[in-house]
Design a binder for these strands. Structure first.
Lengths: 160, 160
DNA sequence: ACGGGATCGTTATAGAACATTACAATGTCG
DNA sequence: CGACATTGTAATGTTCTATAACGATCCCGT
């Protein structure tokens, strides 16, 4: 059995409960674990912001990136999201089926498609961006503005 | 089509590339996105620490919690990990098949099983904890000790 | 003591998100 | 021109997880 190519992405809406009286041992000592718990919390905010839209964080990120970089290829999109080409293609298909994105031939490369938002996709993502940002801010409101800035700085330093 | 019960867990070893010249738009403004990138970075450290052991973060967390709380029930384990009972059971099965964990009847509750590490499981998790902690520290070494403490504090505040 | 409702483990089923592999078409560069 | 890389695509398989249902057991109000 090959050692698998591993999972660690919140696939659930269930928060990670802090069960009173339970010993978390070394977990409380790991940055990775603290990150995961915070990420799940922020994910709940994201889910609230996009409720009923059938949007996931990767889908959201993809739409934003396509909108900000019209004509981007599926390969590059995959690299940005950290997924394989085939996955990026599935995303593009899904968007296209909904009429949010269209593929146009590129003059500079006969192999690649250029991805573009449709008018409808643009309207949608504009509204979504606002809602996601608002919820993100609201959830982060347990932090002061200075704390929030510091947190972002540390996270980016960590992400390298 | 029902709105799905959503994904956002790093399932891949591929880092989220920072493609030069690309516009990330609102993503750079979202705490959720910064968290995700940092989490992927820490996940790489975890994967390095457990290479070849067929261990994932949820599996690791489960073993640690079982070790620190002998006799814990599958339901509570599920709540701690943020997964459904059925998933916690699958985990327990997997551990048991490997001889790392055993189920014992509990005197106080005829329905529940108590989960316990076997001798072998104890040895394994002890070694694993050390390796994971070491890799976590090493990856976090881009931060000063004070920064690391502050980061953990902010993350826990955010996780609520 | 009893009866209704909650909780535990379990099983079965379904679905999403991926990776991997292979292929043809196109690009690049010696 | 020819070797080699890269693009999109299709097919396949794995893993994680949820959901729903079930019997057994517990708990609590009457």
């Amino acid at each position: 059995m090959r050692s698998r190519a591993v999972p660690y992405r919140p696939r659930t809406l269930a928060p990670i409960e802090r069960v009173p009286g339970l010993d978390y041992d070394v977990l409380d000592d790991l940055l990775g674990y603290a990150l995961r718990r915070a990420q799940v919390a922020m994910f709940l905010a994201f889910a609230a912001a996009t409720r009923g839209l059938d949007i996931t964080p990767p889908r959201f990120a993809a739409l934003v990136v396509i909108g900000a970089n019209p004509g981007i290829s599926q390969s590059v999109l995959g690299r940005v999201l950290g997924i394989a080409r085939s996955g990026a293609m599935a995303l593009a298909d899904w968007f296209e089926a909904r009429g949010w994105v269209e593929r146009r031939r590129r003059s500079d490369d006969g192999r690649a498609w250029g991805l573009h938002l449709t008018r409808r996709g643009e309207r949608l993502i504009a509204a979504m961006k606002e809602r996601v940002r608002r919820h993100d801010r609201r959830r982060a409101a347990v932090l002061t503005a200075a704390e929030r800035r510091e947190l972002v700085r540390l996270l980016e330093k960590l992400a390298g």
